[in-house]
Design a protein around this nucleic acid. Structure first.
Length: 815
RNA sequence: GCCGAAGUGGUGGAAUUGGUAGACACGCUACCUUGAGGGGGUAGUGAGCAUAGCUCGUGGAGGUUCGAAUCCUCUCUUCGGCACCA
């Protein structure tokens, strides 16, 4: 039995093919102006220690796209690297007394072994880790360029402070307002930090989203909402007995006559002023300042406020408007103050109801009476607004703007939700921010890189840099200065790594001319969780690099594919839930091709994938079937090449299926990225090879048709199961690289069927089917349908009112 | 809370532009094969019923249409993001 002669042994096969790739540097590429380039990038991983299923899925998708593009003849660059800075390395250092640097390097080594075992077509010569001096040196340089251009600035900002551990905490380290290690109540603390002026690019980033035709609509929408451009007006309210007035921003100037209170944030200057005069107000503000909340917590909290005891003056009516401090007012959006219009804003409504503030309806609602359960937030005609009554939103906006201008109490304004990017982190394992201070002035470091010491002693949990004399105290231009001990946000590294892959070994510049050939990335593949921050920061950095003349174009990622999560039992795989599946064991048991085939077959890439051990077995079974099929075919002797023309129906049926499959799979790979349906189509084709065509006495024509089908199957599978495809290909064409044989030519005339099956419906319900020649005229199909006996049963007692024919598919008889 | 998605047989999913719902797999059932198996093969498999067929059926409730998984309105559930996890 052939299966016993040649059992499928993935371990040996995969090793052999991988050795060939590595010895021949199959995936090493250089710039070739005569070839169309294709840069395919998967989001690089944080080296946590071992590959998880999410990585396997992400990288299998990227690899399939890369290999397919190469089959189309393109010069494909697919690099891989390591997002090597970050918090987990520090935690490992604290818990296990290891150096973050060596912990990271060990993790990289083991993860690289795993990626190699999976057979991904990476150009490994371009590999780098962001924790390498050669890498972060250039981002330090880049930061100094930004500093020079005024794009980077220092400002005080709030952080979570653990008073016991004496350290800054990340949001994820704060659990229910307490430090995760110490359990101490977290405090808000203000620290001087570095910011990048991403808001300078808000307008351009927003406009640019429209041009990203290769991005999923949902990601573009999320980015647009994140940037959050809103057009409205700024009104100035004078305050009784205070010199300063209060500015409020509103997107609904049409509701100005419905203002019944002003709400300011706890950090507003007026709040601070009043807290010095009033104990209750001071207590309220202190309470608000306790914990730095995430926006989610902020929005979920019960609305609370306190009257400041002072009033503003309505700019149009001169009426007294009470000023309240509210916990729902964002301090860093607009001017940290808002005009409360409870009748037409839900948050204002809830606040007004709680504190019994008047609710003044100024927009015509659905009913005559005032709504008592919720605000009416839609735009409509103005009422109870004096001279503005009867105007619609646009008219009112204009009229109110003119009046405000005249009274010098307000003007049109555009506001963005987007805030400047704070890049300072009070942590050790990151790229040092290359600035120095003499106690008065802050300036850039001249000697780059500012090296991060790799041998450090952790005293508790705070950054060891703060206690390292040799790091801290240096000389520049003969002056004794102190270094900045903060490091960069790790998003800093991941915002430009794609560009460095193009100039991976450039010693004299951050990015050289090679980037002009490779950039932008043609296909970026990664998790949806990066839809906003990472992708927006990267788009921002790309523009900054462009403005420095380093690269061309505006956008880093031409096409984006966001793959879904890998779930088990309906929830995300995680160590804490204990529902993880280790890819390593599966690779050892079934081979990389089986694992890759399963993750590509189980779900479309952008959907979540439910893990199934039985599904993996199914994938393995299919691979075994292909293995036996091809080996049997080879045992029978590969037919000499010759004409594929035949008059036999079974042969033409197989050939037609082969070519239809080639066309479908190509479309699925190229346009739809629908790998699961591509695999299903390949399975169908393999199921349709007649057994009689694989017998000793099968004729030459049959054998040639089978050969054509088998070659197509191996080629079509090769982006997903590259080892199997290559190994079997060698049995037909020794020493030929299957990746470079090209996609088989699709014979158009085999795609057309000579017969069509038309479904017949009566009143939209399927009642019968007829088979007709494909050139049958419409009238004949209609009369054939009406004559059909199954149809007659449903139409005989009724009058046919209409017959709708959808060419080649369906006919609907309306009675 | 705000922003963005998803919901189809026992399970994963298919239906590409509003046109035959359930392709392809998994599982299950029966039979054949094997000393054995996470082997191989053949057939069947949405539910119900008065079973040549009919009725119901894509989270739920309405609507548009000759025709809706697909479009619209409302609603429920699950998931991603919310700026110091990456």
């Amino acid at each position: 039995m052939p299966e016993e002669d040649f059992p499928y042994e993935p371990g040996n096969i995969e090793k052999e093919v991988q050795n060939y790739w590595s010895e021949n540097e199959t995936f090493s590429v250089t710039e070739d102006p005569n070839k169309e380039k294709y840069f395919c990038l998967s989001m690089f991983p944080y080296p946590s220690g071992s590959i998880h299923m999410g990585h396997v899925r992400n990288y299998s998708i990227g690899d399939a796209i890369s290999r397919f593009q190469r089959m189309l003849g393109k010069n494909v660059l697919q690099p891989m690297g390591w997002d090597a800075f970050g918090l987990p390395a520090e935690n490992a250092a604290i818990n296990n007394k290891v150096q973050p640097s060596s912990w990271t390097l060990e993790n990289i080594e083991s993860m690289k072994t795993q990626l190699t075992q999976l057979g991904f077509a990476y150009d490994w010569k371009r590999e780098f880790a962001t924790s390498e001096e050669d890498y972060y040196k250039w981002e330090q340089w880049f930061f100094l360029q930004m500093l020079e251009k005024g794009m980077a600035y220092q400002e005080e900002a709030e952080v979570n402070w653990d008073p016991v551990d004496q350290t800054v905490l990340a949001n994820e380290q704060v659990i229910d307002g307490k430090g995760w290690r110490s359990g101490a109540e977290v405090e808000k603390k203000r620290l001087k930090q570095w910011f990048l002026k991403i808001t300078d690019y808000a307008e351009e980033l927003l406009a640019g989203t429209e041009l990203l035709t290769g991005w999923p609509e949902q990601v573009k929408t999320q980015q647009k909402n994140w940037i959050g451009k809103s057009e409205g007006m700024n009104f100035t309210f004078e305050v009784n007995n205070y010199e300063n007035s209060i500015n409020v921003f509103t997107t609904r100037p049409d509701t100005i006559m419905g203002v019944s209170f002003i709400a300011i944030s706890a950090s507003h200057f007026l709040s601070k002023a009043r807290s010095k005069e009033d104990d209750l107000i001071r207590q309220f503000i202190e309470e608000q300042n306790k914990v730095k909340q995430s926006e989610a917590d902020f929005a979920k909290q019960e609305k609370e406020g306190i009257y400041t005891g002072i009033d503003a003056v309505h700019p149009f009516t001169g009426k007294k408007i009470p000023i309240w401090i509210g916990n729902f007012v964002l301090s860093d959006y607009g001017s940290g103050a808002l005009m409360g219009v409870p009748a037409h804003d839900q948050r204002d409504f809830e606040f007004a109801t709680k504190y019994e503030l008047p609710i003044l309806q100024v927009i015509e609602g659905p009913g005559e009476t005032e709504s008592t359960s919720e605000a009416f937030i839609e735009k409509n005609k103005l009422i109870n607004s004096g001279e503005f009554d009867g105007l619609n939103f646009e008219e009112a906006f204009k009229a109110i703007e003119i009046k405000a201008k005249k009274l010098k109490c307000g003007k049109k304004e555009t506001n963005f939700r987007l805030r400047d990017w704070g890049v300072s982190r009070q942590r050790y394992w990151g790229a040092p921010i290359p600035v120095l201070s003499d106690g008065i002035n802050t300036f850039g470091a001249k000697d780059l890189p500012v090296k991060l010491p790799t041998t450090v002693a952790f005293q508790g949990v705070s950054s060891p840099l703060k206690d390292m004399d040799e790091f801290l105290n240096v000389e520049q231009d003969g002056k004794k200065v102190k270094r900045e001990t903060d490091t960069f946000d790790t998003f800093f590294e991941s915002s430009w790594y794609y560009a460095r892959f193009a100039s991976f070994d450039s010693k004299d510049s951050m990015i050289d001319d090679r980037a002009k050939y490779w950039l932008p990335v043609d296909q970026y593949v990664g998790g949806i969780e990066h839809a906003v921050l990472h992708l927006l920061y990267s788009r921002f950095f790309y523009r900054c690099m462009r403005d420095l003349g380093l690269i061309e174009g505006d956008e880093p990622f031409k096409n984006l594919l966001c793959q879904g999560m890998v779930l088990k039992d309906g929830t995300k795989m995680s160590k804490s839930k204990g529902n993880t599946v280790d890819p390593q064991g599966l690779i050892e048991k079934y081979g990389a091709d089986t694992v890759r085939l399963f993750v590509m077959f189980a779900a479309p890439p952008e959907q979540s994938l439910e893990w199934s051990d039985q599904g993996v077995q199914g994938a393995n079974r299919f691979i075994n079937r292909i293995w036996r099929l091809v080996n049997k075919h080879i045992d029978l002797g590969i037919p000499e090449s010759g004409s594929l023309q035949s008059s036999e129906e079974a042969i033409n049926k197989l050939r037609s299926k082969t070519h239809k499959t080639l066309a479908k799979v190509k479309d699925d790979y190229l346009r739809r990225h629908s790998f699961n349906t591509a695999i299903a189509a390949i399975m169908e084709l393999s199921n349709e090879i007649p057994k009689e065509f694989l017998e000793e006495n099968s004729n030459k024509e049959c054998r040639r048709a089978v050969n054509e089908a088998i070659e197509a199957i191996l080629i079509m599978l090769s982006p997903i199961t590259p080892h199997l495809s290559q190994f079997l290909w060698w049995k037909i064409y020794p020493s030929e690289l299957i990746l470079d044989v090209g996609w088989p030519e699709i014979e158009e005339d085999l795609l057309e069927d000579s017969k069509l099956t038309i479904a017949i419906q009566v009143n939209g319900k399927l009642r019968s089917q007829i088979e007709v020649a494909s050139d049958t005229p419409e009238e004949e199909i209609k009369s054939l349908s009406l004559a059909d006996e199954k149809i007659a049963i449903h139409t005989e007692t009724k009058k046919v009112r209409k017959v709708i024919y959808v060419p080649g598919k369906i006919i609907n008889i309306v009675v």
